[in-house]
Simulated assay, not measured.
Amino acid sequence: MTSSHELPTDQHGKTLQDYPRPSVAVDTALLTAHDGGLKVLLVHSPGGGWALPGTFLHPGERLADAVLRSLREKAGVTGRSPQQLHVFDEPGRDARGWVLSVAHVDVLPASALLEPLNSERATVVAVEEIHNCELPYDHAQIIGFAVEQVRSRYATTPDPAGLLKESFTLKELREVHEAVLGEALQRDTFRRSMERELEATGEMSDGTQGRPAALFRVRRG
Rank of each mutant, 00 (worst) to 15 (best):
A66R: 04
H139T: 00
A179G: 13
S3K: 11
G48S: 10
T156W: 06
P46N: 00
F145G: 02
E73V: 01
R93A: 15
H12I: 03
R93P: 00
L173S: 02
R72E: 11
V107C: 13
V176T: 12
A214G: 13
F56K: 03
L71D: 01
A112Q: 11
G37P: 03
R191C: 09
V77Q: 08
Q186H: 09
H86Q: 12
A126H: 09
R187F: 09
T28A: 11
D10K: 07
A33R: 07
D106G: 02
Q186C: 07
D159E: 11
D94C: 06
G92N: 13
L164E: 01
L198F: 07
E115H: 07
L42K: 03
A161Q: 10
V99E: 10
S4T: 13
R196M: 13
M194F: 04
K165H: 09
S193Y: 06
L41F: 04
L16E: 12
K14H: 14
E195T: 15
E128V: 15
H139I: 07
Q11W: 14
G182I: 08
L41E: 03
A122V: 02
G47H: 10
A75G: 09
G182S: 12
E129T: 09
L38N: 06
G202W: 06
C133H: 12
V105T: 15
L71S: 06
L108N: 00
L173D: 04
A95H: 09
K74W: 04
G207Q: 05
G54V: 06
H139W: 01
G144I: 02
D35F: 00
F190Y: 10
T169L: 08
P8G: 06
V87I: 15
D138F: 06
F145E: 14
L85K: 05
L185Y: 09
W98Y: 14
R220V: 15
G144R: 04
R151W: 02
A51L: 12
L16S: 12
G144A: 04
V180N: 05
E183G: 08
P136V: 07
L185P: 07
L117D: 10
M204F: 13
E73W: 00
A179L: 06
S152Y: 01
E199K: 10
T189F: 05
Q11T: 15
S101W: 10
V77R: 02
